[in-house]
């Protein structure tokens, strides 16, 4: 005979208190683990998410929770914490002038240095969040780059947030994420699931290689080599100067000579590092690893 259902514990009633000192300790710890600089003044944002994670783990104090995150074998709670603390709001064809720059300028330059019988073109979207960016890149290439069928093109998409990656692989979006998608493109690359939701067609979903990369992990970043274009938009704004510089250096190593980095419109590589050469195309300013 089955046991009667039990009421869930009332965690929310007595949420553990988090002090200002705890927040400072947490921000320092989170920065060391992820490179992301949390602003300790955003107390509501941080407290709310920490309290949720502490309650989910039945931790009665911040100290207890921090011990769990630091020493748990496998790091599942660290990943859950990262998932809570990262922001994943985006939409298709956001800052699409950079995709126009990709298909009108960057890809031709890259293709001219490659042999289509032997060489692939490799594009990396980081952070890819819930997938809108890598899918937008793929659609832009298929629609707007006349030489797309001449080359093998690989799109790699990574994020630190495993929950966002799961959603990206699933490829289901509400209509508001598609507000910049024309009806023709929508009907070509999406299937309507119901009144509110659309799903990316299987062939496009299967063409993107999604996976976890923590930018602040040199080991994980070292796996990325031979990339031709990196889209890293609106990530570095969360980093401090040193982490930005380290990330720029990782990107340099990941790129082939002549490869490009596209940053968000409010980010400036010249303030981070002089290791790249600025390339001002009519559509966008991007940053190039110098050719030998």
């Amino acid at each position: 005979m089955a046991s009667p259902p039990q009421a869930p514990p009332l965690h929310r009633i007595a949420a553990p208190r988090i002090s200002a000192e705890d927040v400072v300790v947490f921000c320092d710890f989170f920065y060391k683990k992820t490179g992301i600089s949390m602003d300790a003044s955003r107390r509501y944002f941080i407290d709310k998410r920490l309290e949720d994670r502490m309650a989910a783990n039945d931790c009665n104090s911040f100290r207890e929770y921090l011990s769990l995150v630091k020493f748990q074998p496998g790091g599942a709670e660290m990943q859950a914490l990262i998932n809570e603390m990262t922001v994943n709001e985006t939409y298709f064809f956001r800052e699409d002038y950079q995709f126009a720059c990709l298909t009108r300028r960057m890809l031709d330059e890259i293709a001219d240095r490659k042999d289509p019988r032997r060489d692939r073109i490799r594009i990396w979207s980081i952070p890819c969040s819930t997938g809108e960016e890598p899918y937008s890149i793929a659609i832009s290439i298929l629609e707007d780059w006349p030489r797309a069928s001449d080359f093998d093109i690989e799109i790699i998409a990574s994020d630190i947030d495993t929950r966002a990656l799961a959603r990206a692989r699933e490829g289901i979006y509400q209509a508001r994420a598609l507000h910049r998608v024309s009806p023709r493109i929508r009907d070509t690359y999406f299937r309507k699931l119901d009144g509110e939701n659309w799903q990316v067609v299987p062939s496009l979903r299967e063409s993107i290689d999604f996976g976890v990369i923590n930018v602040s992990s040199p080991t994980q970043m070292a796996r990325m080599r031979g990339i031709d274009v990196i889209f890293c938009r609106n990530l570095l704004i969360y980093f401090d100067d040193l982490s930005r510089r380290q990330t720029a250096e990782h990107f340099f190593d990941a790129l082939n000579p002549g490869g490009f980095v596209a940053l968000g419109h409010s980010e400036s590589m010249s303030r981070i590092s002089n290791i790249f050469v600025p390339r001002k195309f009519p559509e966008a300013l991007v940053h190039q690893r110098p050719l030998p």
Binding site: I141, I156, E206, S207, D209, R223
Partner: peptide
């Protein structure tokens, strides 16, 4: 040619 099918090998 065109978009390659994802291999998953990039993250190993």
């Amino acid at each position: 040619m065109g978009l390659l099918k994802a291999s998953g090998g990039n993250f190993s």
